[in-house]
């Protein structure tokens, strides 16, 4: 008892400084103090869980009708023509779905909107994670390489980035997507291309979107990583590491990478909404995932077509898309504040 009060009487700083501290751990502790960012993070985690376990959380499974319309059909593709454009909260007219409630309504083919929105989460989350990871890894590696070796290498690498930066991104995305989409009609014999097309079809048309977005979105990451590397590599601790004979890979992985990872992560989080929106837009104009795989972009397009008579169909995908983008923006803002030492008390 006496020991406990003694501890409390000690100055706080003395106990804190004994722990080993890393820049990432510090930032994480700071982030936990930001309620909005924590809530956004939780929202994203829930979204990921819903995406992974969509088979258990769709309306058919929740209401116990999983096999009512034949077990082999994925839930998001179950069409019930008697129930087309069912309003939110309406009971199904189909005899085998007696008692089934369309909580959010159904689309013009009688497909449950809650189920389709839920499976649409998969596309958006997958695009966010895959394109985010690819652009983070490629951009950071490229940026560190340019920044660390500098000189001529840096010049050439950054001119390439400048050029790619000048490309109108959306035009190139559409071009490449049209290219990939036209492949399935032309490739007949077994080759790498037809193999890739098979992968794409198995993923409902998501694979090529991953490839395109990942391949084209690492540019700003490379610039940030390079700039950070340039400033870190002049610091005394890097000099110290060099003077005791540390090899480049040790300096890069032990000195530079941990110190630049923070700003890069922040930037990546703030870019994720862009990937989600690009996918949604591609799907909106019919160049995204293949029907019947649901994507929020496709759903918004379908709802938009029937806006006059069935405006409620717009609500689920619109709310889902907005909340997801909002959550990533809040989380990114929180991360940025957390990584900014000037904002700490």
């Amino acid at each position: 008892m006496a020991a406990a009060t003694d501890k409390a009487a000690q100055p706080v700083a003395a106990t804190v400084d004994r722990r080993e501290r890393s820049p990432l751990g510090d930032a994480f502790r700071q982030l936990l103090k930001n309620k909005v960012a924590v809530a956004s993070g939780l929202f994203i985690i829930i979204l990921i869980l819903l995406a992974v376990f969509a088979d258990y959380f769709n309306a058919y499974a929740l209401q116990g009708y999983s096999d009512a319309l034949g077990p082999n059909q994925p839930p998001y593709a179950k069409q019930v023509l008697q129930d087309n454009n069912a309003r939110p909260g309406v009971l199904s007219q189909n005899p085998s779905l007696e008692g089934f409630v369309y909580w959010l309504g159904a689309d013009n083919l009688g497909r449950d909107l809650w189920t389709r929105t839920l499976y649409g989460t998969r596309v958006s989350i997958a695009v966010a994670l895959v394109a985010g990871t690819v652009s983070l890894v490629v951009g950071v590696v490229y940026g560190i390489a340019a920044g660390y070796w500098g000189g001529r290498v840096d010049d050439i690498m950054m001119r390439i980035v400048d050029f790619l930066y000048g490309l109108p991104l959306l035009i190139v995305v559409i071009l490449v997507q049209v290219y990939f989409k036209s492949l399935d009609r032309t490739s007949e014999n077994a080759s790498l291309v037809s193999y890739l097309v098979d992968i794409d079809q198995a993923m409902g048309g998501m694979f090529f979107i991953f490839v395109i977005l990942g391949a084209l979105s690492w540019l700003s990451m490379a610039r940030i990583a390079r700039g950070q590397t340039l400033s870190i590599k002049e610091k005394e601790f890097v000099e110290a590491a060099k003077s005791i004979g540390a090899r480049p890979q040790r300096i890069i992985f032990k000195q530079i990478l941990p110190n630049i990872l923070g700003p890069c992560l922040v930037q990546e989080t703030l870019e994720i909404p862009g990937y989600i929106l690009t996918e949604a837009f591609l799907s909106f104009i019919g160049l995204g995932v293949n029907a019947p795989t649901p994507s929020w972009g496709i759903m918004i397009n379908e709802a938009f077509q029937g806006l006059r008579s069935h405006p409620y169909a717009l609500v689920p995908p619109a709310v889902a898309l907005t909340l997801t983008v909002l959550a990533f923006n809040f989380l990114g803002d929180g991360l940025r504040d957390a990584f900014d030492p000037r904002l700490r008390e």
Binding site: P273, L277, A280, F281, F284, G297, I300, A303, F304, L307, L314, A318, L321, T322, V325, L326, N329
Partner: peptide, 10 residues
């Protein structure tokens, strides 16, 4: 955060 894709139709 509100995407054009959502704001426009709304």
């Amino acid at each position: 955060s509100i995407p054009n894709l959502v704001l426009g139709p709304l």
